[in-house]
């Protein structure tokens, strides 16, 4: 464990808590893409299949359970909670995320560390996480204005991946055998997807204006 990875995991955890807080406190999920949340739930379930078989550390196990439960709780809230689901921007959240699922699974079958069920699902979860934010970014573009909690959520998600890139650089130099190419390359692509959002987020912060993404 290094400081970059710990910072990344904490940022990721905070991003999920910010989202849960927004939904719970405002009883609204406007501006949040249900499709992105469903993709994240799939990412965690597919990645943590080893939750009960491989014990790595107490921290690792706890965080996996927290991520799985929180992502499922968010999807449940947006789908089933009778008050929250009314504020879901169904007509704006139209990204065809099924294509992302099929493509990522196809790539995972071809490019993986070892052709086993667990490794294919792990690679699938890595690729899917890289593109999971797309429905959310499209929804933000469409809805124009970004309320600050949703903006902070996306910003923190980008920050978590940026910290992980520092973690891979650190591990590359520290460990003699670096074999995290699948995570590192996929993580780079993921962070690049946030770049434009970061740019507009920084502009709005600098001009102290409301965050407006160009339509």
């Amino acid at each position: 464990m290094n400081i970059f990875r710990l910072a990344g995991d904490m940022t990721h955890l905070i991003s999920v808590l910010v989202l849960l807080l927004k939904i719970y406190a405002t009883k609204s999920c406007s501006g949040i893409s249900l499709k992105t949340q469903e993709l994240y739930a799939m990412v965690f379930v597919a990645r943590y299949l080893d939750l009960f078989t491989d014990y790595i550390s107490f921290y690792n196990t706890v965080m996996k359970i927290v991520f799985i439960l929180s992502s499922l709780a968010i999807v449940w809230c947006m789908r089933m909670h009778r008050v929250v689901k009314r504020s879901y921007d169904k007509e704006l959240d139209t990204f065809r995320h099924n294509i992302l699922i099929v493509v990522c699974f196809g790539v995972a079958v071809i490019i993986n560390e070892k052709f086993t069920l667990r490794e294919v699902f792990w690679a699938f979860s890595i690729y899917l996480e890289a593109v999971a934010i797309l429905p959310q970014l499209v929804l933000l573009q469409r809805s124009g204005n970004v309320d600050n909690l949703t903006g902070q959520y996306v910003f923190l998600l980008g920050g978590y991946r940026a910290f992980y890139i520092l973690n891979w650089i650190y591990r590359y130099f520290v460990e003699q055998r670096f074999s995290r190419w699948i995570s590192a390359i996929s993580g780079l692509i993921q962070t690049a997807l946030y770049a434009d959002f970061f740019y507009y987020y920084f502009l709005s912060w600098k001009n102290n204006a409301k965050l407006h993404l160009p339509a």
Binding site: D50, M63, K114, E119
Partner: peptide, 10 residues
């Protein structure tokens, strides 16, 4: 091939 190292990252 050697066993892929366990994925210790979240």
């Amino acid at each position: 091939s050697e066993q892929p190292q366990s994925h210790d990252e979240l």
